[in-house]
Design a protein around this nucleic acid. Structure first.
Length: 907
RNA sequence: GCAGGGGUAGCGAAGCGGUCAAACGCGUAAGGCUUAGGACCUUAUGGCUUAGGCCUUCGAGGGUUCGAAUCCCUCCUCCUGCACCA
């Protein structure tokens, strides 16, 4: 497009903005401030259009707020914390071909690769640098003076994080404990989803262990349903399997050999004692710890020695496999007399019915088991034969029985994976219980309540996200906050541990406010007490230095954070931690005020990830398109919807801006007077301003775009088509158009504004305000009538299949308008035709027509004089459109004309 | 499994109790313009209909209502998160 030589225009205005200093705001108490951030990026690769999507959404808002008179701060740092950067550098060192290839695609030179191999920091810095360059090339309105990196590579930031953790600890929100993780026994590391070649999404699942004693031995039955213990009739082992004796806390446990590595990694004080011939136990018995019942031990082939302990308790009336197994042993069944202990309304023989339904193959029994478990867990009530559990819902009974078993010292726990997990190196994963882990106590009820209060009052866009945050808070548990490897800040009281990335990135937004001042404070002076003074307004020891006072001023002006913008995948992790940490640490007036959650930029329906995005980098994008052309994508989405990368939609940009620049080119040719159509378009414009502003305010960019870009240009076109020709009107419309579109398309609008003769930049101009005096509903309604009439004429011509010689349009007379408008008024309160008739108390053919269909009652007030005027004004336009004579009459003879629906006669 | 959000024309989507055959955009087709292509302009894009009309649709099935894409229930299906991972 000739009008958008983006290579030139982008650079030109980026320079001008920087020169003006608008991106580097200073503390100014006379101006309202607005502080907006996007989560800190992890620089392990090049930034792609997906990143641009989210950042652009924030940038649009920053520019929008700037024009609305706010002092806007939009800073950006880099997150070096975590494992992957180190891991990738290690892979470069080992010359892993896949990693090298990926970097080369992104344009990394051989000499840089060498640096990466020597120092992970070089890798992070390389990409952080690239990120910043990309962002400068697309004119992001970021204050780069406040950039920083995390981890102890940045001592000031590290001090800040140490302060945060000391604070949490003082508040009693840090605890030490154990934690189950999926583990690779070969590499001796936790197996995250990305480290797995199989079993993504599988997690540890807690099994209860009920200890049944048999002489000097313990038979530890692993079960997901400890509440069924009162219904147990017997024990199962697999007579063909290998078993052994394990010494657990001085008890002799009989367990399958398969379970030994698991139990060793999960329980304390476990040692191997020796093999055992399991067959010897068949026919013996073990004692139910709660009711003392002796349960016979049977062998059953479906007992899988690889699951749990290889020992199971049998509850035939509530477990299809147990039912099936014991039913085969007729005599035993009679002797043991299994009883139901759980009631589910409408289910008399739930297990038997389930087996009938799913079949008695292994798979069928498994399906039946799933069905019964789910049904009974959600709807089951314990019957009165379950001692202290009687009458409880199954959900409650599960916790109660654990307590009872604990009391009888008959309870333990183990974890089992929910499915098979295999490490990238081929080793099957196991569950390991990590001891002495440091946790942040996100489960704390009081803390949650406080945070809930915040979520309830915050500005959240879209609104759906609020409920999701509240629900996440409900189930949130303690989070392990430190680990042994990777980059980061050491835990201040236990330096062996590094604070983990999701935990050191919860309140750093506060650090932006002071990032450009804090380095002036001598690092040794930066104590927790100083941070308390700066961030919390606490008393400081001695008289604070000037540097400290200045730092404090920055924080006090810019905080709290007004808006945080991010994609939806961070909603249930980062965002919730961010909110919790703020409510714990900061004074209430400094809690965050707003968040925006967006969807993703997708390619053929798939999210752009670092690997998939390699070909859609910002750099590549800019080879073909201008910044503003790419920015239209960021404006395409509303709420959490994903937006598909579709270069074709960029043509819409070209088309609309082409139209506007043509208009500017022909600006001098507008010489006419103001007419009805002028009132119409100014009224429409007024409406567009109002609605666009509201949509932008709520991050509904898609809606804003369809108004300010599409609807407005359509109206402009209608205006000129209809012979609109007034310079003042056109000028007003053009400037409004450019201002409204500036936040989304800053470069091109700035250029066109310049071409139009403005000497001021849009970036520093004032956002348009709707003027009530311009709104003219009558004119809008009547132009709608005109449009509808044109449609009708076309329709008729199509049906008649002849080109008209003359078209006579008859506008209804004033009497009809009176009746019509009284119907409109009446219909605004009821849709009931009989009611409307009653209130009108007149009779006429017109009324009969208007009240024919309750779904098609008239709603808009109309004006006879305006209607006639609009049609008279449009005569030339109609003449051109239909290429025939046009006659506008008041009231046709046939009396067919209705207000808002003139009669049409085609000759 | 738990929590949340979706399923509307060829596609992206708007509508969230009554002017919905469905805005807006993309795509497609025909015509115009052009040496040609692109861009641009016009028109069409569920079906029927020789006068502005009618009929049928909103994942599937049921219900509430004078009236449902919109509210309720059941089912199918897709997306997101579920933590030591950034």
């Amino acid at each position: 497009m000739a009008t958008y030589d983006y290579k030139k225009i982008d650079k030109k205005w980026q320079k001008n903005w920087i020169k003006s200093g608008v991106f580097e705001p200073e503390v100014d108490r006379s101006k309202k401030k607005f502080f907006i951030t996007v989560p800190i990026p992890y620089p392990s690769g090049s930034m792609h259009l997906g990143h641009m999507y989210t950042w652009t959404r924030a940038d649009i808002y920053a520019r929008f707020m700037r024009m609305r008179g706010y002092n806007v701060l939009f800073p950006q740092g880099f997150h070096f914390t975590g494992g992957p950067i180190v891991g990738m550098a290690e892979k470069v060192k080992q010359k892993d071909p896949k990693t090298l290839e990926a970097f080369r695609i992104q344009g990394v030179s051989e000499s840089d690769l060498k640096k990466f191999a020597d120092d992970p920091r070089a890798l992070a810095e390389y990409f952080a640098d690239g990120f910043r360059k990309d962002w400068e090339n697309i004119g992001m309105s970021i204050d780069w003076r406040r950039t920083f990196i995390t981890t102890d590579l940045s001592p000031y930031f590290s001090k800040f994080v140490s302060w945060q953790f000391n604070k949490l600890k003082t508040l009693g929100l840090i605890t030490e404990g154990k934690h189950p993780v999926v583990w690779c026994p070969k590499e001796n590391t936790p197996l995250g989803d990305h480290d797995r070649s199989e079993g993504e999404g599988e997690s540890p699942e807690k099994f209860s262990i009920v200890k049944f004693s048999s002489g000097k031995f313990i038979f530890p039955a692993a079960t997901l349903r400890p509440e069924t213990v009162y219904g147990a009739t017997n024990m199962w082992i697999n007579g063909e399997g290998e078993y052994c004796i394990l010494n657990v806390d001085s008890e002799k446990w009989v367990v399958s050999k398969d379970s030994v590595p698991k139990l060793k990694s999960q329980l304390q004080n476990v040692s191997f004692e020796g093999d055992v011939k399991i067959k010897d136990f068949i026919g013996k018995s073990a004692k139910n710890p709660l009711n003392g019942r002796e349960l016979p031990i049977f062998s059953e082939s479906f007992i899988d020695t690889a699951i749990g302990t290889g020992i199971a308790m049998s509850v035939p009336m509530h477990a299809p496999m147990d039912f099936y197994g014991l039913r085969k042993m007729r005599d035993e069944w009679e002797k043991l007399k299994p009883e139901r202990i759980i009631d589910v309304t409408g289910e008399e023989n739930i297990v038997e019915d389930a087996i009938k339904r799913f079949g008695d193959s292994i798979d069928g029994l498994k399906e039946a088991t799933k069905y019964v478990y789910k049904k009974e867990f959600n709807a089951g009530i314990m019957r009165n034969n379950s001692a202290e559990l009687s009458g409880l819902a199954v959900k409650e009974a599960r916790d109660t029985v654990r307590d009872s078993l604990e009391e009888h010292r008959a309870y333990s726990e183990m974890y089992e994976l929910t499915g098979r997990v295999v490490c990238r190196d081929g080793t099957p994963g196991i569950v390991k219980v990590l001891e002495k882990q440091w946790f942040i106590r996100y489960s704390d009820a009081e803390w949650k309540t406080k945070t809930r209060r915040l979520i309830e009052r915050m500005n959240i866009f879209p609104e759906d996200a609020r409920l999701q945050l509240l629900n996440t808070l409900e189930w949130l548990e303690d989070k392990a906050a430190a680990r042994k490897g990777g980059l980061g800040t050491p835990l201040p009281w236990d330096k062996d541990w590094i604070i983990e990335p999701l935990s050191d990135s919860t309140i750093y937004m506060a650090y932006y406010t002071i990032a450009n001042k804090i380095s002036k404070i001598a690092i040794e002076k930066l104590t927790d007490n100083v941070f308390d003074y700066i961030f919390l307004g606490r008393k400081i020891d001695g008289k604070p230095d000037k540097e400290i006072e200045e730092t404090k001023k920055e924080f006090e002006y810019w905080y709290p954070l007004d808006m945080r913008v991010s994609a939806k995948e961070l909603l249930q992790n980062h965002f919730i931690f961010f909110l919790l940490n703020h409510t714990a640490i900061f004074n209430e007036e400094n809690w965050p005020r707003g968040i925006q959650i967006n969807g993703w930029l997708t390619v053929s329906g798939e999210k752009l990830s670092k690997s998939k995005g390699a070909t859609l980098t910002i750099k590549r994008g800019l080879e073909t398109y201008g910044t503003d052309q790419l920015r239209i994508l960021a404006a395409a989405g509303n709420g959490m919807d994903d937006v598909e990368w579709n270069p074709a939609s960029i043509s819409a940009f070209d088309q609309r801006f082409g139209l506007i620049s043509d208009l500017i080119k022909n600006f001098d040719s507008f010489t006419g007077e103001k007419r009805l159509i002028d009132s119409y378009i100014l009224s429409k414009m007024n409406r567009v301003i109002k609605e666009t502003t509201e949509n932008l305010r709520c991050f509904r960019y898609g809606n804003a775009l369809s108004l300010m870009l599409f609807a407005l240009t359509n109206e402009i076109k209608l205006y000129t088509d209809m012979g609109g020709n007034n310079k003042e009107t056109v000028k007003t419309i053009l400037f409004t158009f450019l201002k409204l579109n500036h936040p989304v398309f800053p470069h091109i609008t700035e250029e066109l504004n310049h071409v139009l003769g403005s000497t001021d930049m849009l970036e520093t101009s004032v956002w348009p305000v709707p003027e009530e005096s311009l709104s003219n509903e009558g004119a809008e309604n009547e132009v709608e009538v005109l449009k509808a009439t044109i449609e009708d004429i076309k329709n008729i011509i199509k049906i008649v299949k002849k080109s008209p010689e003359k078209i006579i349009i008859g506008v209804a007379d004033s009497g009809k308008f009176e009746i019509y408008n009284s119907v409109v008024k009446a219909a605004s309160s009821t849709k009931n035709i009989i009611e409307i008739r009653k209130t009108l108390r007149t009779n006429s053919k017109i009324l009969d027509k208007l009240l024919k269909n309750p779904n098609k009652l008239p709603e808009k007030l109309l004006d006879e004089r305006l209607e006639y005027g609009v049609f008279m004004e449009a005569k030339d336009y109609l003449n051109k459109t239909f290429n025939c004579g046009i006659s506008i009459e008041k009231e046709s003879k046939e009396e067919k004309a209705l207000p808002g629906k003139p009669s049409i006669k085609i000759i």
